[in-house]
Amino acid sequence: MQQNSNRSPGGKIYEPPRLTTISLRPEEAVLGHCKVMGSNGPGQPGGCSFLCSSAGS
């Protein structure tokens, strides 16, 4: 009788490793920019305070 080569001695079916690609978003992860679109830190024209706001994703 032919043995199933995919079955381990413990009876668990062998699953070969699989490679899964996960996308990173470094531009989001490093907090390099203000969260408001187009804002690039304090000192914006038209006023200065609260401009590097934390709003937005």
């Binding site: 531009e27 490093v30 907090l31 390099g32 690039n40 830190g41």
Partner: peptide
């Protein structure tokens, strides 16, 4: 280098974050 607002340096005393904005000149604000 975050690519924009902040950069990080290391020396024997610890870490240093420099924050820059083109709206506030060339030096770290």
């Amino acid at each position: 280098d975050s690519g924009s607002i902040w950069r990080l340096h290391e020396n024997n005393r610890g870490l240093q974050f420099d924050f820059r904005s083109t709206n506030l000149g060339d030096q770290p604000y």
